[in-house]
Design a protein around this nucleic acid. Sequence first.
DNA 1: AAGTTCCCCTGTTAGC
DNA 2: TGCTAACAGGGGAACT
Length: 273
Amino acid sequence: MPEAPEVQTVLSTLETQIQNLKILKVDVFYEKILANPSIKELLVGQSFLQFHRIGKYLIFTTELYDFIVHLRMEGKFYLLNEIPKEKKHIHVIFSLSDGRFLCYHDTRKFGRMELYPKQEDKYNCPALKKVGWDVLDERYTPMYLYSKIHTSKRSLKAVLLDQSIQAGIGNIYADEICFASRLDPRTRAYRLSKKDCQILVKESKRILAGAMKYGGTTIRSYTSSLGVTGLFQLKLHVHTKEGCPCDVCSNPVIKTFVNNRGTYICTHCQKRK
DNA sequence: AAGTTCCCCTGTTAGC
DNA sequence: TGCTAACAGGGGAACT
């Protein structure tokens, strides 16, 4: 389940591997991955020139376009020397000018690919129109967060997962950010002070940046196999730790549901306001 | 308008 | 043992 750090790892690896390579051919085996079937033809002859990430969106800029890919739950890229025999979950294959193949693999078929005319400011791309600042963007500040949520009745967790407020946080990191901020994810957003927003923004940036650094170091040993996947190896304190003793206070971590999402909390460390 | 629920998918696991 | 049902989850559509 790639969140911003895993997406960044995929992007960085691809940047070193496929920059300036031209797309000779695109084969699509599951059309619904593409927002528009014409993408297949439009990309032929284009080259992967620049690589950007906003939240969980990958942005590959070519001569004419911004090619936007969202991996959703299980999307992965593999860079292979030949087309694999087992293509069950491979839905798109890009034939590249160096003879290799960039294969898009996605068991649940949730991923999406979109194509738009190239924009200077990627936030202007139609695919990202409703996406808020990336968590690591300097414009994502405590006051920005406070202004977005201080009248909202929604839970803190819902707000952290809302990509139109800030982009890049998924279910795992949302729980970890709440734990690090010592806030109960069920807290109503309007109850959060400016000081709470300061802590939340700081911890969000710290945790995502830390995970990216880790992913970036771990991926190197995998580049030889050219399997380009995001690695999630950050040390988790609460997420998936139901019943485990809290790393801080040793009380058991509980699992509950917030906004229909499995949510892990140390109710001793995390205060509900 | 804001907030919630449903749905898209399929592999894995829990339950009978 | 073998089957079905529930579950996981990002985000957009549909609904309240």
